[in-house]
């Protein structure tokens, strides 16, 4: 998946799942869109579906630093890279 494709998938998830339309890629999701820890768990579930594999405990822990859409895209790219290298 290219970065653009990942970004599009994430934006679709935000629109359909969290009813957050057209968020800025560098918006602080918690501050601007009230994205909370419950949403984060759902997002990780969606990312697992996107990647076709479960996230490890360590990978989930890494997601706690995420605050923007760009952070999420970086995170998904790194996860995808690890999986394609296996």
């Amino acid at each position: 998946m290219t970065r653009s494709e990942i970004t599009q998938r994430i934006l679709t998830i935000f629109s359909e799942r969290f009813e957050i339309d057209h968020p800025g890629l560098d918006d602080d999701l918690r501050e601007v869109h009230e994205f909370d820890s419950i949403d984060a768990i759902e997002l990780l579930r969606e990312i697992e579906i996107m990647l076709g594999s479960e996230l490890t405990h360590e990978e989930k822990r890494q997601s706690m630093d995420i605050s923007t859409i760009n952070d999420i895209v970086d995170y998904v790219q790194s996860l995808a890279a690890v999986r394609s290298a296996r």
Partner: peptide
């Protein structure tokens, strides 16, 4: 607050 409803959805 939306939290309860988000948990229900989760």
């Amino acid at each position: 607050n939306a939290g309860a409803f988000k948990i229900a959805r989760l």
